[in-house]
Amino acid sequence: MNIFRLAGDMTHLASVLVLLLKIHTIKSCAGISLKTQELYALVFATRYLDLFTDYISLYNTLMKLIFLVSSFSIVWYIRHHKIVRRSYDKDQDTFRHYFLVLPCFLLALVINEKFTVKEIMWTFSLYLEAVAILPQLVLLQRTRNIDNLTGQYVFLLGAYRSLYILNWIYRYFTEPHYVHWITWISGLVQTLLYADFFYYYFQSWKNNVKLELPA
């Protein structure tokens, strides 16, 4: 495992922990899109089916379990926790799941490496992860006013994606036969979706002012 991959996994883990910390300590999920969190839970549930069939390493298995448990816990908190759920802004978080889930599934049926259930689910999870942040970005745009933790959460997710791209470049030059078109293209699309947010995040950081997105 190279340094970019490890740093990518760690920022991904940090993003989830920041979110859980916010929900658990402040007992608030204000500004967090439940739609995005449900999509991530679906992403992990469909991608990590190989937990039952392949063993890669203890690290790999543990991280997969952490992402599965944390994503479902976050969804549970927002939906069912008696205090947290009151801070959920249902009227602003209106993105429809199926606008993203259905096209991703159809695309996975057509463009995949192998026409098997496991492979199609894995491909679907990659396509869905690429666009799962959209409800969150729409919510940020609508509410405009972003608290620090929510801003950091999205920033860490973007950092994780950028580091994964560096990881692929590194692996491409150091490992034989390392070519993964589906992973690369969907990963690139996913990272580009953060570009706009990153721009405003860095502006606010540079000028030392609160992050606010333009209407």
Binding site: D9, D50, D54, K64, H177, T183
Partner: peptide
């Protein structure tokens, strides 16, 4: 034939 590397990413 190139062997496919295992899917070791998360």
């Amino acid at each position: 034939d190139n062997p496919k590397p295992p899917k070791d990413e998360l």
